[in-house]
Design a protein around this nucleic acid. Sequence first.
DNA 1: ACCTGAACACCGTTCAAGT
DNA 2: ACCTGAACACCGTTCAAGT
Lengths: 228, 228
Amino acid sequence: MNARPPGRPRILSRERIVAMARRIADDEGLDALTVRRVAQRLGTGQASLYRHIEDRDELLRLLAEDVAVHLPGAGEQADPRERVVGQWLDAYDYLARHRWAARIIAEGEHVADSASVFSSSALDALGSLADTAPGATGASRADLARVYRVLWHLLLGHVLNVHPVGHAEATADEATADAAGAEDATDVSGPHGPHGSHGPHGPHGVSTPRDDFVWALPRVLDGVLGAS
Amino acid sequence: MNARPPGRPRILSRERIVAMARRIADDEGLDALTVRRVAQRLGTGQASLYRHIEDRDELLRLLAEDVAVHLPGAGEQADPRERVVGQWLDAYDYLARHRWAARIIAEGEHVADSASVFSSSALDALGSLADTAPGATGASRADLARVYRVLWHLLLGHVLNVHPVGHAEATADEATADAAGAEDATDVSGPHGPHGSHGPHGPHGVSTPRDDFVWALPRVLDGVLGAS
DNA sequence: ACCTGAACACCGTTCAAGT
DNA sequence: ACCTGAACACCGTTCAAGT
């Protein structure tokens, strides 16, 4: 819409602010995201941002909404179960790439609406699955919402818990106490590929957070959809 | 061990610092917990704390460990299922009272050990349940650790997600868009009482986060323990 | 009319000066 | 030897002075 003047673009806007903020958050984490840094990177004075945003909290909210809007919808698979599992794995991969946003979304109160394309799409897919399931007599809308929330919380828990080995690891395989090898598993290899095709274990035989989620998702689905 | 001098206790120690920090975090939240405030409330200079702690991050870690150590063990119920469900509900209630700690634990890397009484106790209970389950042929230690992690992530997700109504609510019961009534559900009525005895709905017919967890826990348990 | 440098009230952390 | 006031380098936010 606006003709961009030559050289560095001048006109400040909410969109440009949010875009730059998102780049900083993705690159350097939420703590590095200061109002002053955003202004500096945009080449404006520190106080200028307050013409477009109320305060830092609003910036964080805008940021979280920007992420929430882009949560993936359900795919086009014919099998409702594949559709459900696929969407939630996509959502996991997406949020794992923006952990900071997951943190804000979990804490924020008004981001729910921004995720409506995700949530309504997910509810539809869950509805189809509930109707198709063997023995299940369909589920009420309230039950579906409950199932949705359980999956959402399961997803949040897996995304927000950072350290790759859960509490249990040290207890599970007794001796090797300090064998917490894999430090950063940030490179989850871009595209979401064939879901759950590879084995359940990482290079060292320890399971990554994503492996845990891949393992848990279908089983949890069985549990929460089994009985009404 | 130390004789306390009359008037305000003088000797500074890690314990006193952590205790005061915990009180501030519980009362006013994690953001209000500044190094300077802790020092002020203890009646010492701001710089004095650095004789006992490395920096603010270490203080947060000590705080999280203090909470993690006090995670509840499994009860004495004869039925392993009741033992498992009871422990995890206790853990939920405990962490819900210290959300700030859940946040630190999720992000921290070295708190795992502090939760060992919780995790090993939980693994034992889960082991008993897996052996007792009808049709299940027991589970390997690795599987149990996986189940443990899934429950832990489910718990974390429920605790960390603040707003009482999940995304779905607005989508689930169409019309009533802005009927997000119950703002603060902080008073979860002290003792943990009879687990899951009351109905699944809050006063307004909307389910609280705790209700969701109560509903999800046994079903998820079925799902993850059902097939090996 | 619109923008923003400088100022204010906070942080965490350090270090030299105090006892 | 031990403690800590004052200082430093950052914050978010405001407001009067600039254009």
